[in-house]
């Protein structure tokens, strides 16, 4: 028996959220969306999720801040968090890793690779 994997996508671009939503729901995932780190924290306080996919550059609370805040508490300490970003610098990647990210994906994303990564970290 399989259950649907629940994903929260965090990105300030409505266009990117729509593209992600299309790519992930087409593969049977249950997708929710947040527009920045603060909105993601609010949503995660009330909802359960299996995987978080977050952008880095966002207003109010960026991806680094979101990961740090989620890792501070016990509830999301082991939650898989994939960073999906236009950033290509090694320094930013190292920072995401140090903050507790599970993986790093560079945009523009390949839907097949993204889905494979989600399946891998959610099992």
């Amino acid at each position: 028996m399989t259950t649907t994997t629940r994903i929260l996508t965090v990105d300030d671009s409505p266009s990117m959220r729509a593209l992600l939503n299309h790519a992930l729901t087409a593969q049977g995932f249950d997708v929710s969306q947040a527009e920045d780190g603060m909105a993601a924290l609010d949503w995660l306080a009330l909802n359960e999720v299996d995987v978080v996919i977050t952008d880095i550059n966002m207003p109010r609370l960026d991806g680094f801040g979101l990961i740090e805040r989620l890792r501070e508490g016990s509830r999301h300490r082991d939650r898989p968090i994939l960073v999906l970003t236009t950033e290509s610098s090694e320094e930013k990647k190292a920072r995401a890793r140090a903050a507790g990210a599970t993986g790093w994906i560079v945009k523009p994303f390949d839907p097949a690779k993204l889905v494979a990564a989600v399946r891998r970290v959610s099992h």
Partner: peptide
């Protein structure tokens, strides 16, 4: 170039 590449930590 390696677009969409995934690196799991």
């Amino acid at each position: 170039k390696s677009l969409g590449d995934v690196e799991l930590f």
